[in-house]
């Protein structure tokens, strides 16, 4: 027992380390939640005397740890506040597209008949349009902004969930316990919600995690194009976009949000892959 203890402890430490994507995601969530306390400065406060200063620059007692941008705003503070936009857009659009897509997919897979035909043709049509193109076009029509970005992302991405929910529902609906619950007099809504949904949560979770990473990228892409959250609100995508103009003189403006995006998307995808290994198919 005592001989085995150290081996077990080191195994546990390695285990915790191997979950770094989850820790990183957790840390980013904390950043987003506690941004007002964590950010050293007001992310929108401009200081024309401190424009384009390199990381570590100090002015009137304030340190710009990651440098300042073209309006003299603190890059670190904007980065921390930007996490709020990235994460909340991603979470809300995943939730919205997930709810819509899963409902559509399960209804099609369980009710079959013309419901199935109509809904799944619609899914096919949506899936045949390049997602980012559809997002850009609709946001251009609806106009930019936080809520519209979420709506547009949900509109673009629900078919993915519908596909998975549909296939999974078809498979589960064949199982004898679904017939039993129908024989008990359960309504279609109850069969779907109580007996089928819990049995397909795993694969849906995998899709949601992978989609989460994609939503972060889409939001950044839209903001980069000026179609996302509007200035002066800090968003990693818009920071990248302005930073692009100063790459030669002030590399830090674009580099740090780029790095943050990279790490966030990477960890979401790694978590998704890990989940799908555990759960089976995705």
């Amino acid at each position: 027992m005592s001989a085995a203890a150290p081996a077990r402890r080191s195994f546990r430490a390695a285990d915790l380390l191997s979950w770094w994507p989850a820790w990183l995601l957790f840390a980013l969530v904390l950043c987003a939640l506690f941004a007002p306390w964590l950010a050293p400065m007001d992310p929108d406060r401009q200081n024309l005397l401190a424009r384009l200063k390199a990381p570590g620059f100090e002015a009137r007692g304030a340190v710009y740890h990651l440098g300042s941008d073209e309006l003299g705003r603190d890059v670190l503070s904007r980065l921390i506040y930007g996490a709020r936009i990235s994460l909340s857009v991603a979470v809300l659009s995943v939730l919205l597209s997930g709810v819509v897509g899963v409902t559509v997919g399960m209804a099609a897979g369980y009710l079959r008949g013309w419901t199935e035909t109509v809904l799944m043709r619609l899914v096919d049509i949506f899936l045949s349009i390049p997602a980012i193109l559809l997002a850009i076009i609709t946001v251009a029509v609806l106009g930019p902004g936080f809520v519209n970005v979420i709506l547009v992302l949900a509109l673009t991405r629900w078919p993915r969930y519908a596909r998975v929910a549909y296939g999974q529902t078809l498979a589960i609906a064949e199982r004898p316990f679904v017939r039993l619950s129908r024989a008990m007099g359960a309504s279609p809504a109850r069969v779907i919600a109580v007996h089928i949904l819990p049995n397909i949560v795993g694969p849906l979770l995998v899709v949601a995690t992978l989609e989460f990473g994609l939503m972060v990228l889409f939001e950044a892409g839209l903001s980069f194009l000026g179609l996302g959250v509007q200035p002066p609100t800090a968003s990693w995508g818009s920071m990248l976009s302005t930073g692009r103009n100063y790459l030669a003189t002030a590399w830090w403006i674009a580099t740090f949000p780029g790095l943050a995006l990279f790490l966030l998307v990477l960890s979401a995808n790694m978590i998704g892959d890990r989940l799908s290994d555990r759960i089976g198919k995705g």
Binding site: F177, L180, S181, A183
Partner: peptide, 11 residues
């Protein structure tokens, strides 16, 4: 039903 085990919802 004929198959008792698979006729019960595992969850």
């Amino acid at each position: 039903f004929q198959e008792p085990v698979s006729s019960l919802n595992p969850l």
